[in-house]
Amino acid sequence: MDKKFDLEDRLVEFAATVVIFCKDLPSDLTGQYYGNQLLRSAGSSALNFGEAQGTNTDRDYINKASISLKELKESRVNLKILSKVNYGNAVRRGELLDELEQLIRIIATIIKNKK
């Protein structure tokens, strides 16, 4: 299987795992706010990377992949905030952060190599 599709699958898996993680967040104002933000940024990272697969030029690809990277970085900050206030399953949060760091490194390297 082509590596770009493996990465897309990882981004989809990450977004799906975030959905499950957010279901278990407390339903108070903090849980709802950060949960909704995390759902959007994690989902957007997968969706924008999917769009990047259909671009015709390196410039378009870099643009969409860069948006995906920004969304992943937003997800990382969100999870760090949730860690500071001890929201959500700590083990799952740690797993999400680990996968995020790997995804960020991969996409940043792809963008760098396309320039």
Results as ranks from 00 to 15, higher is better:
Gly43Cys: 09
Ala16Pro: 01
Gly54Leu: 06
Asn48Arg: 11
Ser45Phe: 04
Cys22Val: 06
Ala46Gln: 12
Thr17Arg: 14
Val18His: 10
Leu38His: 04
Phe5Thr: 05
Pro26Trp: 07
Gly50Asn: 13
Asp24Ser: 15
Ala15Asp: 04
Ser45Ile: 06
Val19Gly: 10
Phe49Lys: 07
Val19Leu: 11
Thr17Val: 06
Ser27His: 13
Gly50Phe: 07
Asp9Tyr: 12
Ala52Leu: 04
Tyr34Ala: 05
Gly43Ser: 12
Val12Lys: 13
Gly43Asn: 10
Asp24Ile: 05
Ser45Gln: 08
Thr30Ser: 15
Gly50Ser: 13
Ile20Phe: 11
Met1Asp: 06
Phe14Ser: 07
Gly50His: 12
Pro26Glu: 09
Gln37Asp: 02
Asp28Lys: 15
Ser27Trp: 08
Ile20Asn: 11
Asp28Arg: 15
Met1Ser: 09
Leu38Cys: 04
Ala16Leu: 13
Asp2Leu: 02
Leu47Val: 07
Met1Thr: 09
Asp24Trp: 10
Val18Ser: 07
Thr30Gln: 15
Leu7Ile: 02
Ser45Gly: 14
Asp6Cys: 13
Thr30Val: 12
Gln37Asn: 08
Ser41Thr: 02
Gln32Ser: 14
Phe5Tyr: 09
Val12Ser: 12
Gln53Lys: 14
Arg10Val: 00
Ser44Thr: 01
Val18Asn: 12
Asn36Ser: 06
Gln37Cys: 05
Phe49Gly: 10
Ser44Gly: 10
Ser41Lys: 04
Gly35His: 09
Glu51Cys: 01
Asp28Met: 12
Asp28Asn: 15
Asp24Met: 13
Lys4Val: 01
Ala15Phe: 08
Val19Ile: 09
Thr55Cys: 13
Val12Ile: 01
Gln37Val: 01
Ala46Asp: 04
Phe14Glu: 05
Lys4Met: 00
Asp9Thr: 06
Ala15Trp: 03
Glu13Trp: 09
Gln32Asn: 15
Asp24Glu: 04
Asp6Gln: 14
Val19Gln: 13
Ala16Phe: 04
Ile20Tyr: 12
Leu29Val: 14
Phe14Pro: 01
Ala15Arg: 08
Gly35Ala: 09
Asn48Glu: 03
Asn48Pro: 06
Val12Gly: 06
Ser41Gln: 06
Ile20Pro: 05
Phe49Thr: 06
Glu51Trp: 07
Leu38Arg: 01
Arg40His: 03
Leu29Ala: 14
Gln37Pro: 03
Gly35Ser: 06
Asp24Leu: 14
Lys23Leu: 05
Val18Gln: 12
Lys3Pro: 03
Arg10Ser: 06
Ser45Val: 00
Glu13Thr: 02
Ala52Tyr: 11
Asp24Ala: 11
Asp28Gln: 12
Gln37Gly: 11
Cys22His: 15
Cys22Lys: 14
Ser41Met: 00
Gln53Glu: 07
Glu8Lys: 14
Cys22Gln: 08
Ser41Arg: 01
Ser27Ala: 14
Asp6Asn: 13
Met1Glu: 02
Ser45Tyr: 03
Tyr33Ile: 02
Glu51Asp: 08
Phe5Glu: 09
Ser45Trp: 04
Asp9Val: 02
Ala46Cys: 11
Ala16Gln: 15
Leu47His: 12
Asp6Leu: 08
Ala15His: 07
Phe21Lys: 10
Leu11Thr: 01
Pro26Thr: 10
Tyr33Gln: 10
Tyr34Phe: 06
Gly50Thr: 11
Gly54Asn: 10
